[in-house]
Nucleic acid binder design. Structure first.
Length: 203
DNA sequence: AGTGCGATTGACT
DNA sequence: GTCAATCGCACTA
């Protein structure tokens, strides 16, 4: 049987910038692939946020712990944590092994496996399916089980290259923080309907 | 051992 | 637009 995701090619670690902020920009337009026994899901990344070294809003700021261990893996690993006791959030580790930093994936354009994602989310509306960091993980059935996984190898969760043109990328302050609120470390596809946040934040 | 607090979401005015 | 739910974790004692 041919999977919907058969045509995708895994993103090589060597292609990933070694800098957290550059990685956040680089991941825009790339494809996130989720493979489960029930089926395959995918979506194009349309919004990210960088949490670089020394950022007081970053989970690695106070050093390595059991929870944030995956942030200290070399770039291209998944860090998944539970936010507000309700939503799992997916990060891509950045930097080299032993340095804690990451990129939050905030929104996807749904591509493959949309009916299953609609079941996972109990939502029909395509625009609400993966618009938001906690929504996209629910749609793709991502939780702590996937924490620490290598996203540069095909498996239950991985990143794929895209053959499309590089989209026009906008930049703004990050969303939902109480510290470091002014740093312009959020990146998004300009005008894209699947970007989260108020409309004024996707121009 | 107890406490305070989110990198959010969905329901509601 | 506002607001409460919810729970793992980091921090204090």
């Amino acid at each position: 049987m041919r999977l919907a995701t058969d045509g995708y090619k895994v993103l090589a670690r060597a292609e990933l910038p070694r800098d957290t902020v550059l990685l956040a920009q680089h991941l825009i337009g790339k494809i996130l692939v989720r493979e489960t026994p029930e089926g395959s899901f995918s979506g194009r990344i349309v919004e990210t946020e960088a949490y670089p070294v020394g950022d007081a809003a970053g989970h690695a700021y106070r050093g390595e712990t059991l929870r944030n261990h995956a942030l200290f893996l070399c770039r291209g690993h998944a860090y998944v944590y539970l936010a507000y006791g309700a939503s799992y959030l997916l990060n891509v580790s950045s930097e080299t092994s032993g340095i804690g930093a990451g990129v939050l994936v905030r929104a996807l354009e749904p591509l493959d496996g949309i009916p299953s994602m609609q079941r996972n989310r109990r939502v029909q509306n395509l625009r609400d399916l993966t618009r938001g960091p906690g929504r996209l993980t629910a749609a793709l059935d991502i939780d702590r089980r996937l924490d620490g996984i290598d996203l540069c190898r095909m498996g239950p969760l991985w990143l794929a290259r895209d053959d499309h043109d590089v989209p026009e990328i906008g930049r703004s302050a990050r969303i939902g923080l109480s510290r470091e609120t002014d740093r312009p470390l959020r990146f998004y596809v300009r005008g894209d309907r699947f970007v989260s946040g108020p409309k004024t934040l996707n121009r």
